[in-house]
Amino acid sequence: MRIVEAALRLFGERGFEGASTRDIAKEAGVNAPALQYYFDNKEGVYIACVEHFVARVWEYLAAPVSAAQATLANPDADDSDLIEAYLGLQGCFVSFLSDSPEARDWQLFMARERAGLGPPSAFAVIDERLNRRLFPVTASIIGRLTGRKPTDDVTKIRTIAIDSQVAVFRMFRRNVLSALEWETIGPKEMAQLGDVIFEQTRVLLLAFVAARDAQQGAARD
């Protein structure tokens, strides 16, 4: 764990190419042969960082994802239930970024990873263990609320845009601090961001429902 935490910091600060196994071993307080023994090489250390990140995120998401899946499977669930299920998922992202002491290190690490600056094997882990477990759920909710199939390109684009609302405030930290004239993004600031994002998401989803109903009504006429 100590090696992974040190590697997350250095990979976040210097990138995959810039952080050496020697630097990571020194930061973790172990010798380089020990690091190679446990992780084989630098890519192995990086993958361990990704697996740790995914595991921690899923601790926050497992329950609301299950709840959202149950709502989707419930034939009596209405639009309001679907909206609340989505907001429950969104709230967990806010909690994850607010409550996790490692949030800053993860933010830098994942900003580089999402920019495609890590090894392809790392994205495969994130895609299989996180994206493919979460995205079908959020896309299904957005699809139901807009009257489109979850596999429709428009639904996918909308889902990606809405799902990314919380993360963008961490990924573009400097821009946010400058625009809002804040010194930091701590629990208080994240709570304010969360309130605004939740309100905005609710208004947007309700607008989708209204547009869907209007379109369906016009089609019947």
Rank of each mutant, 00 (worst) to 15 (best):
K26E: 15
K149G: 15
R220H: 11
F198D: 13
A219I: 12
V50T: 12
A207R: 09
R104F: 12
E181W: 09
R56Y: 04
T155K: 02
V209P: 00
G186V: 13
A19Q: 00
L204G: 09
V94I: 13
P120H: 01
F93G: 08
N131G: 13
L130T: 01
Y37F: 14
E59V: 15
R56V: 14
V196I: 13
I47A: 14
Q215V: 01
D221H: 14
L206N: 14
R144D: 01
I185G: 07
T151I: 03
P136M: 03
G147T: 05
F93E: 12
F16G: 02
A7G: 06
V4M: 11
A111Q: 05
T184C: 03
N74P: 15
E59F: 07
P119N: 02
A124D: 09
V50Y: 04
E43V: 12
P101N: 05
D23M: 14
E27F: 08
L117P: 06
V137D: 02
E199A: 15
V65G: 02
Q107S: 15
S140W: 05
I185M: 10
W58K: 15
P64R: 00
A70P: 02
D40R: 15
L177R: 04
I160N: 11
A19D: 04
A48I: 06
M110R: 03
L206H: 10
I142Y: 04
R173I: 13
L10M: 09
M110V: 07
L10N: 10
L204I: 14
I83Q: 10
L87I: 10
R132W: 04
L97W: 15
I3F: 05
T146F: 09
I185P: 03
